[in-house]
Amino acid sequence: MTPVTSHSAAVAAWLAGADPHPRKVWAEWEQHGVALVPLGRRFDAVRVPAERMHAATGSDQPRIVADALRSWLAGPVLRDLRSSLGPYYVLIAPSAEWDGPEERLSTNVFLGVPRPGHPTMLTRWIVELPEPGRLCDTRYLRTLLALADPLRTVGR
């Protein structure tokens, strides 16, 4: 088990604050390791299919994908691990502009968020929040995903 640091505790507190009842999030993390956190208040998410993310990063190897996302986006990314095709969720500010083809999830949607520093079998942080409130810039996400189609064509 990963030790809990003051950094991951601060990030967890910020994430829990996305819910009007943060204690509910903490209780879900304690009981299940994953909490359903409402979007639209502190952050939104862009759902990116695994195939597209792997094409954009040039790999489906977890470490390579994580390194590429950390370098490109410098912000938090989750992945649904329930299948090998599980999508990636790029966390962005509710005020951020997004006009890409990938679905933006926001108000009235809940996202399964693992507690920082505590890996789970259902979902995992690919890139944890570098600090509370520091989210991905949609300009960098748009640029990264623009690479997916040309790289997919080259790989054929």
Rank of each mutant, 00 (worst) to 15 (best):
P150Q: 06
G33W: 03
R82P: 00
E30R: 14
H7R: 15
T2E: 11
P114F: 07
M1L: 09
L36C: 00
L78I: 13
H7N: 08
R82A: 09
D99M: 06
R42G: 15
A96Q: 06
E131N: 00
E128T: 11
G112C: 06
G17W: 02
A66P: 01
L151Y: 12
R139Y: 05
P150G: 05
E51P: 00
R42E: 02
A45V: 02
V65P: 01
P62G: 04
D60Q: 11
P132E: 07
T107M: 03
P101R: 09
R115H: 01
V11E: 04
L91Y: 04
S84T: 11
T2I: 07
P132K: 12
P94A: 07
G117F: 07
L147P: 02
A148V: 09
A56K: 07
S95V: 12
A13Q: 11
T143F: 09
A16R: 06
P76G: 10
M53H: 03
F110Q: 10
R139T: 09
R63A: 14
Q31K: 13
E30H: 07
Y140L: 15
S6W: 08
L129M: 14
H32K: 07
S71M: 12
R70M: 11
M53C: 07
V127P: 03
T153S: 13
R152W: 13
R63P: 00
M53G: 04
P101D: 08
V37I: 10
T123C: 09
D80V: 07
G100R: 09
V65C: 04
P119Q: 09
S84G: 05
L111H: 05
V65R: 07
Q61Y: 07
R79C: 05
D19L: 00
R52M: 12
A55N: 12
G33F: 04
E28I: 00
P114D: 06
R152H: 14
V90M: 08
L122R: 14
T143N: 09
L141H: 10
Y88D: 06
L91E: 05
V25R: 02
G133N: 09
H21D: 09
V4W: 02
L144T: 10
W125H: 12
Y88Q: 06
